[in-house]
Nucleic acid binder design. Structure first.
Lengths: 215, 215
DNA sequence: GAGGAAAAATGACTGTGGTCAACTTTTATT
DNA sequence: AATAAAAGTTGACCACAGTCATTTTTCCTC
């Protein structure tokens, strides 16, 4: 059979990821050592590092699979006729729940995703891409429906929403937002702000202050 | 003299911070070990941990001092008559330059600030507070000038801008934005978006699609 | 200033992530 | 099937962050 080597590699990789799912779930990410992971996978410690460049990358690989599943699930839940803000909120909250299911786990993931080290940048980008695409496709639909400006790049608008999501997560991690309800409420406000803008709603008929705006 | 103990503690703390400034600057954060820090400060390694709860907290303490300085400098540079967007951009870019002067250093700081561990949450909040206040005071002025909606909470609006800043930093760290010019350009777009909103500029006179908006 | 209690400093020690030279297995070649 | 080259595996080893029982210094009381 051609490719015994390839076969074994696949199996080993799967074994590592499987051990990761079990041990990370049982004892958490930090309290699981790479040696323990190796032992659970039935291989030597050094071998792990010919499959993953660091312990954090194992986490990313694990999350990539999970997120692929979660994302498709979210997509199927979305009511295509709901308002954009509502859809966004649903996406945000689903991802929030996933990523904060285990606090420490989520923190490591977010740290690595948001401010990646060179060593994990590829994986990190891949996952983020998948995530951003979710927004971008929502925004594209919105544009087609005429409920979103068409004079802006989708990726920038997507980034805008993504930033609100990150911010809210950060606020949760630093204890500014305590409950899921807080998070949801804040996200709602932020999404609304992003949609309607921060400029005053009506231009005052007469103004005493110098009022400069860029283009 | 009353308080020899206090005096010594202050001196030791200063010595550690001083060693940190030198060694972090010379060899970078990660390549500087706590033992080396202790040796440079002329104290034992264990002592460090009765002044700081972790290596990361030393970084935060160091940055707190630096940022206090940077922030006041930024404030003095701000032309009070410039448009809000311009002021925001100046603040963002100044902070961006500071935090990315040393890439790895900035990454550790941002990770700890954005997704802090319980052990460093206090310091992290303190620094973030200082940072947010900068925005909030800008926004307050803007409200008084009538160039910013008054029906929103300042802290939420401040968070909104802060989120754009974080996002852009993240994009830089993951290699999406490569140069300072890219960063500035993107920030400009995002700030403009935030101000003007993502909804279509003019409500179409006649529409064929269902167009629901929340409140 | 002697004695003892409280506070602070210490460095040997622990468990960790990651490395690497030596070793084993697979593949290609004859 | 023998052999050599290439690919893959390994665990002893390293440097590190953080801990803690022990020692040293400061303070308070008489």
């Amino acid at each position: 059979m051609a490719g015994l080597r390839e076969q074994k590699k696949k199996a080993t990789r799967a074994a590592i990821l499987n051990a990761a799912i079990n041990l990370f779930g049982e004892r958490g990410y930090e309290r699981t050592s790479v040696s323990a992971l190796a032992k659970a996978a039935g291989i030597g410690k050094g071998t792990i590092y010919s499959y993953f460049s660091s312990k954090n990358e194992i986490l990313l690989a694990f999350c990539e699979e999970e997120l692929a599943f979660i994302n498709s699930e979210i997509k199927s839940k979305l009511d295509p006729d709901a308002p954009l803000a509502e859809k966004m909120l649903l996406v945000f909250m689903s991802e929030f729940r996933f990523v904060t299911k285990n606090k420490e786990f989520g923190r490591t993931l977010l740290r690595e995703m948001t401010f990646p080290k060179e060593i994990t940048i590829d994986k990190s980008l891949k996952i983020e891409e998948r995530f951003l695409n979710l927004f971008v496709s929502l925004l594209q639909e919105a544009q087609e429906k005429g409920v979103l400006r068409t004079d802006i790049e989708l990726i920038i608008a997507g980034g805008h929403f993504y930033s609100l999501y990150l911010m809210t997560l950060s606020a949760w991690y630093s204890g500014r937002l305590l409950s899921e309800e807080d998070v949801q409420e804040t996200l709602k406000l932020l999404i609304d702000q992003a949609l309607t803008g921060l400029l005053p709603r009506k231009i005052p008929a007469s103004s005493t202050t110098d009022q400069r705006n860029n283009s």
